[in-house]
Simulated scan of single mutants.
Amino acid sequence: MTPCRPPSRRSTTGFTLPELLGVIVLTSVLAVFAMPSLDSVFGFRDEAWRGELIAALRNARQTAVAHRRLVCVSIATGGVSLQIAAANPASSCTSPLVGPDGQSTYATGSGTTTSLSPAGTVYFQPTGRATVDAAGASTGAWQISITGQTAITLLGETGHVE
């Protein structure tokens, strides 16, 4: 007869303490090296949003001059919307100007806080000037601030974007 062995009391499920410590150490080391890389990725996204915003403003000015129509620009954290007037002269913009992707929002924001000072809609006149009202009575100068980026300046008299 073969002798019977008593059942093993050692459990075969779960992890041992050295295995858990090894995983914690490895995760910590990866986090130390991965976090700075993620910060730079978010910085590139903010730079891309800044570039899209500048392109939208320049496109609005060019479209106003080329079509000899009023173009209205609305800037928010979520995106930039452009609209064009149906005729000239006009006191409001009625038709959306579609963006490069065919959507009514010209550019979509990165979620980074974006603010326009002074707040409100920017009106590009058929002459290329940027004004604070649709009638074109007074030009303005705007600062567009994006968190972590250099501010964008829009000069009303010329419509130049810096």
Rank of each mutant, 00 (worst) to 15 (best):
M1Y: 11
P3H: 04
P3S: 10
P3F: 13
R5N: 06
P6G: 06
S8H: 05
T13C: 05
G14N: 11
G14R: 06
T16L: 07
T16W: 01
T16H: 07
L17K: 06
L17R: 03
E19A: 13
E19R: 10
L20H: 05
L20W: 05
L21Q: 06
G22Y: 09
V23E: 12
V25R: 08
L26I: 14
L26Y: 05
T27M: 15
S28Y: 01
L30R: 08
L30Q: 10
V32S: 08
V32M: 12
A34K: 05
P36W: 07
S37A: 14
L38R: 03
D39Q: 14
V41E: 08
F42M: 13
R45A: 10
D46C: 03
E47N: 11
A48H: 11
W49T: 12
L53E: 01
I54L: 03
A55I: 04
L57P: 04
Q62M: 09
V65M: 13
V65N: 01
V65D: 10
H67G: 10
H67T: 15
H67D: 12
R68P: 00
R68E: 11
L70M: 12
S74R: 13
A76E: 14
A76H: 07
G78N: 14
G79D: 03
G79L: 09
A87T: 15
A87P: 00
P89N: 10
A90V: 09
S91E: 13
C93I: 03
C93F: 07
S95R: 13
S95M: 05
L97H: 00
L97W: 02
G99S: 06
P100N: 04
P100Q: 12
Q103W: 00
G109F: 06
G109C: 12
G111A: 12
T113V: 02
S117V: 15
G120M: 03
T121Y: 08
Y123C: 09
Q125F: 10
T127Q: 08
G128H: 05
A130C: 11
T131W: 04
D133S: 14
D133Y: 06
D133G: 14
A134G: 10
A135G: 14
A135V: 09
G136I: 01
G136Q: 02
S138G: 13
S138L: 13
T139H: 05
T139K: 07
G140L: 06
G140A: 05
A141K: 11
Q143S: 15
I144E: 02
I144G: 04
S145A: 15
I146G: 00
T147G: 02
T147R: 11
T147P: 01
Q149V: 04
T150F: 09
I152L: 09
I152E: 02
T153G: 02
L154A: 05
L154R: 08
L154T: 03
L155P: 00
T158M: 08
G159D: 09
H160C: 00
